[in-house]
Amino acid sequence: MIPTLWYLILAVTLFVIGAAGVLLRRNVLIVLMSLELMLNSVTINLLAFGHVLQDLRGQIIAIFVIAITAAEVAVALGILVALLRNKDTLEVDELTILKG
């Protein structure tokens, strides 16, 4: 039997790696991929607790997380394509249109 703590440690590790990608990388695409990684670590947490507590609601919420992630990625990549058409850069420190 795998201790629950192991799952949580795995989830925390993946979350920190994803946060590192979000904070340190310059490429917007890699930042988005790191966000996927963080969302996955959260899903591992949900399923781990659902498994320990023998509660199916963890899996239900995980399904919703996955569905909303798909929507988020579609909108984010749409924005990215529109952005590239206007500014021709993918680097987060050069995208300052919203600064005013």
Binding site: L29, L47, I66
Partner: peptide, 28 residues
């Protein structure tokens, strides 16, 4: 996810993430 007793979620993960989201990323 399969180890966690959620085989359905594992299938959804492969379908949605690997099949749809990552292919979208690769397209872009």
């Amino acid at each position: 996810y399969i180890l966690l007793g959620a085989p359905f979620l594992a299938v959804i993960q492969i379908f949605v993430y690997v099949g749809a989201v990552m292919v979208l990323f690769l397209f872009v």
